[in-house]
Amino acid sequence: PDLGLTQLFADPNLIENLKKNPKTSEMMKDPQLVAKLIGYKQNPQAIGQDLFTDPRLMTIMATLMGVDL
């Protein structure tokens, strides 16, 4: 199971919303991170391994779920 990750990354406004959010806007200036996020739309399971190697993803996930870290 993808634990709902498919829906989190399926939002067509995902990148724009993250660019507008004060907690994630600075991160979204990294083209490699943006490319990763776009890739998760097609393969949400890929985030599982990346969560352990890129701490920014935890902040992004929390933001998408509405959790304040």
Rank of each mutant, 00 (worst) to 15 (best):
D2H: 14
N13G: 08
L57Q: 01
T63M: 13
P12V: 07
A35N: 09
N17T: 13
L51R: 05
A10Y: 06
T6D: 12
Q32T: 12
G48F: 15
L51D: 05
A35Q: 12
L64P: 01
I38A: 10
N13T: 07
P12C: 04
E16C: 06
P31D: 08
P31I: 07
Y40C: 04
T24I: 06
L69Q: 13
Q7I: 12
K29F: 04
D50R: 03
V34R: 04
D68W: 01
K29M: 09
Y40E: 01
T24G: 01
T53R: 11
K20I: 09
P55Y: 08
Q32N: 11
A35Y: 05
I60W: 01
G66R: 05
N17D: 09
L57E: 01
L18Y: 00
V67W: 15
P12S: 06
Q42V: 11
E16Q: 09
Q49W: 08
I60Q: 01
P31H: 08
P44G: 06
M28Y: 01
P44L: 10
T6L: 14
T24N: 01
M58H: 11
I47L: 14
L14Y: 07
E16D: 09
L8E: 02
K20N: 14
M58T: 10
D2K: 14
S25T: 09
M28E: 00
N17E: 10
P44H: 07
T59H: 11
A10M: 13
I15P: 01
K23Y: 08
D2Y: 02
L51A: 10
Y40Q: 02
N13I: 04
A46T: 12
M27A: 05
F9H: 02
K23F: 09
F9Y: 04
P31G: 07
I38D: 11
A35C: 05
L51Q: 07
F9N: 01
M65V: 08
L69M: 13
T59D: 05
L5F: 15
Q45Y: 06
E26M: 08
L37G: 00
L18R: 00
Q49K: 14
D2E: 13
N43R: 04
K29A: 07
R56Q: 08
D68K: 02
Y40L: 12
N13D: 12
M28S: 01
A10G: 11
L64K: 01
Q49H: 13
A62N: 12
Q42E: 15
K41D: 04
L14F: 09
N13S: 08
K36W: 06
N43C: 06
P22I: 06
G4I: 15
G48T: 15
D2S: 14
N43S: 06
D50E: 11
L57K: 00
I15H: 02
P22E: 08
L18K: 00
Q49R: 12
L5K: 05
K20H: 10
Q49E: 14
P31R: 06
L14R: 01
M61G: 02
P1R: 02
N13P: 03
A46F: 10
